[in-house]
Design a protein around this nucleic acid. Structure first.
Lengths: 346, 346
DNA sequence: TTGAAAGCGGTACCAT
DNA sequence: ATGGTACCGCTTTCAA
C-alpha cells in the first residue's frame, strides 16, 4: 500500500493524505480522522526511501565500529551503550545503523556514508588522543556526537564524558586515606583518551598526597578478566607488593580478585580494590544494596541514552554551539576496601 | 555531487554514467574508465535513498532487539555476534540496522519495517519455544534468518544453530565418566530454546548413565557472574552437594568458581566445571594453549559471520528452500575437570 | 555504444 | 481546506 493507493481509496488527493498523516494544521479534523483510521486499517507506512529522497532526511544515524586486532571497541561495554542509544533513537523515529568495518577503511566509511546521504549524524565511540575522526567529520560538515573526549582536538565539538580523571583521583585518594601507600593501577588501553585521563587522576592523587608513583604498579591493556588476573599476579609477586588496586573495569576486577585469592589473601581485608563500574547489565556489581566492590560508578547505558538525545538535538540544531556535558561518577562503598594493614609499612 | 552533475562534467548522459558505474557490459571500455576515474576523483557515491527508491532494494538488514525486564538479549554475547554479522554485511554492501524496541512493540516493529520497505531481511536473535516472530515473518513474506531454532514452529525456515543438546550431553557425560554422580546444572533462562535443549542434553546423559536427576541440582536464569555465584553457593551448601557443575556461560562460570573457592574448595581438584564457551572476545577462556575451563566451545562470532552470509543468500535466493545448518561444539579440555573424589560416595 | 524519458513514492510549493 | 504538479536522484526500458 502506497500513498497513491491510500489516497484513491479515500477519494482524496495524495497531498491531503500526506498532510493529514504528517500533522499539518490546514487539514480539517474530519478528514484527518478518516485518513488516520484508513492508514491504520491498511497498515500504511510511508516508504523510507521515498521519504528520504523527498525530504533529504534519512532518519538514520550511524555508529562505525572499526574492526581490528585491537578489540577494545567491540567490548562488553558496547552492548550496554548501544542498548541505551538504541532506545532513544527508536523513540525519536531514527534508525541506528551499525557499521563494522576493517580499521583501514574506517575513515573512508565516514566519507562514503556522507556522500551517499544515508545518514544524518554519527556517534563516535572510544575517542583516542588526537583522534582523526573529529577533524574529518568537522570537514565533512556532518553532525556528530562523541562519547568521551579527544585531547588534542581543540575545535568545539559535541561530547558527553564522565569525569574520569576526577573519578579515579577520588578513588585513589580514598585508598590513600585508608592508609594505602602502594596502589596498583590496572588501566584500560592507554591509546584511549579516557584511560589517559584515569591515569592522570591516579597520578594526581599520589602527587597531592606526596606519595611517589611507581611504574611497576601501573599497567594498561584490554579490559578483560585474564588481563586483571595476570597484571595483579605480577604486582602481588613484587618484593614490595601493592596493598590496594584501582581498576578500570569490573571485568579486570574479577581477574584481580582471583589473583588476590590465589595468593591466599582476601579482598576487603588484606587487599583493597576500587574499580570503575560502568553498571553493565550482565556484569552487576553485586546487588544495589550490597555492592561487591567499592566503585566509581557511572552507567554507560544512561550515557548511551543521553548521547543519543544530544546527537538528535545536534542534528536538529546544527547552528547552535555544540553541547558538552561532563558527568561525575558516583563513589559507591562496597565490600572491597578496608583500612591498610600496618604490618608492611611500619 | 549527484549523478546529473557527474554526467554533465563528463559530457555524457546519466544513463551511460550509471551503466558504467554499475558494470553494465554495453559501455565501451574507454568511457567506463573515464567515468570510473571521474567518480573517484569527485568521491561520487550514489544516493542511498534514490537508489533504494529506484531499485526497490534498501541494501539493509535489521536486527530487532526487544528491550525488557528480561535482558537476556542485550547481553555480552550480543556484541560478539553482531561483530560477526556486521563484518559480513559490510563486505557485501549491506547496512545493519539495529532497532532497540520496547518488548510490547516488538512484533509491530517487524510489520512497520516491512511496510516502510526499509529492510530486505531480518536476523532473529534468541528464539524461544513457539516464538511468535517466525510465523509473523512467514506471513509477511520477508526473508529472515534465525540464530538458533524454535521448537514448536514446524514450517521450514532458515537457521543456524549449535547442537546444544549434544554439546551438553557430551559435557555431562564426560563428567560422569570422570566418576561424578552429582552434577549441578547452571543454565541460561529456559524461555530460550537453546537453554531447553541444553537441559535436555544434561538429562539425557544422566538417563543413559542410569543416574537419576535431582531438581535441586538444576537451575536457570540470566547468565551473569552473580547468578553463577549464588546458584553454586546454594548447591554447595546442600546436604549432598554436587562434585561438578555444567554451566551455560563463561560468565556464570566465573561466579561458580568464586563460590567454590569461598567454600575452601578448589576448581579442578575438589570440584569440576565444564562450561559452554561462546569464545567471547572480552571473556577468553584462558589462553588457547591453556584453557582455564574445560568447555564445550563454539564461537558466537563465527556464527554471526555465517548467519549473515546465509541471510544474504536467503535474500538473493528466496525461491530456494531454506538453508539449515547445525554446528557441533568442540570439547576443550582445560584445567577445571578432574576425576571425582571417592570420599563422598563410597 | 549512447541518450531520452518514464517511473520509484513521497513532500511541498503554488493554485484554487 | 483541498488538489495539481514539480521535484528529490537514481535505474531501466525503449529508441536511435
Amino acid at each position: 500500500m502506497n500513498l497513491k493507493e491510500l489516497a484513491d481509496a479515500l477519494e482524496l488527493s495524495q497531498t491531503t493524505v500526506s498532510r493529514a498523516l504528517n500533522g499539518y494544521p490546514e487539514v480539517s479534523e474530519g478528514t484527518r480522522l478518516r485518513v488516520l483510521s484508513a492508514a491504520r486499517s491498511f497498515n500504511y507506512r510511508p516508504s523510507a526511501g521515498a521519504r528520504n529522497l523527498a525530504t533529504g532526511r534519512s532518519m538514520a544515524v550511524r555508529h562505525i565500529i572499526p574492526l581490528s586486532a585491537n578489540h577494545e571497541m567491540m567490548n562488553i561495554i558496547f552492548s550496554d551503550f548501544i542498548a541505551g542509544t538504541g532506545e532513544i533513537y527508536a523513540e525519536h523515529g531514527y534508525d541506528m545503523i551499525v557499521s563494522v568495518v576493517p580499521e583501514a577503511q574506517e575513515l573512508q566509511s565516514y566519507r562514503d556514508a556522507v556522500a551517499r546521504g544515508s545518514v544524518e549524524g554519527f556517534m563516535i565511540h572510544g575517542p583516542r588522543r588526537n583522534d582523526p575522526r573529529l577533524p574529518l567529520l568537522q570537514e565533512l560538515g556532518v553532525p556528530f556526537f562523541v562519547h568521551g573526549r579527544s585531547t588534542g582536538y581543540d575545535e568545539p565539538y559535541a561530547w558527553l564524558d564522565v569525569n574520569n580523571r576526577r573519578a579515579i583521583e577520588r578513588a585513589t585518594n580514598y585508598l590513600i586515606e585508608l592508609g594505602h601507600q602502594r596502589i596498583g593501577l590496572i588501566n584500560g588501553g592507554e591509546q584511549m583518551d579516557f584511560a589517559q585521563r584515569r591515569r592522570e587522576g591516579y597520578v594526581t592523587a599520589h602527587v597531592k598526597a606526596g606519595i611517589s608513583t611507581d611504574t611497576t604498579l601501573m599497567t594498561s591493556g584490554d579490559m578483560t578478566e585474564p588481563q586483571g588476573h595476570i597484571a595483579a599476579l605480577v604486582m602481588l609477586d613484587l618484593p614490595d607488593p601493592p596493598t590496594a588496586f584501582v581498576a578500570s573495569s569490573i571485568l579486570s576486577t574479577l581477574g584481580i580478585r582471583r589473583a588476590v585469592e590465589s595468593r591466599g589473601l582476601m579482598v576487603g581485608r588484606d587487599i583493597s580494590i576500587i574499580c570503575f563500574d560502568d553498571d553493565i547489565t550482565t556484569l552487576p556489581n553485586g546487588s544495589p544494596a550490597e555492592p561487591t566492590f567499592t566503585a566509581s560508578r557511572s552507567s554507560v547505558r544512561a550515557a548511551g541514552r543521553r548521547c543519543a538525545e544530544l546527537l538528535i538535538d545536534r542534528i536538529n540544531n546544527q547552528h547552535l554551539p555544540p553541547h558538552q556535558e561532563l558527568w561525575e561518577a558516583e563513589l559507591i562503598l562496597g565490600g572491597s576496601t578496608a583500612v591498610a594493614k600496618k604490618d608492611k609499612t611500619t
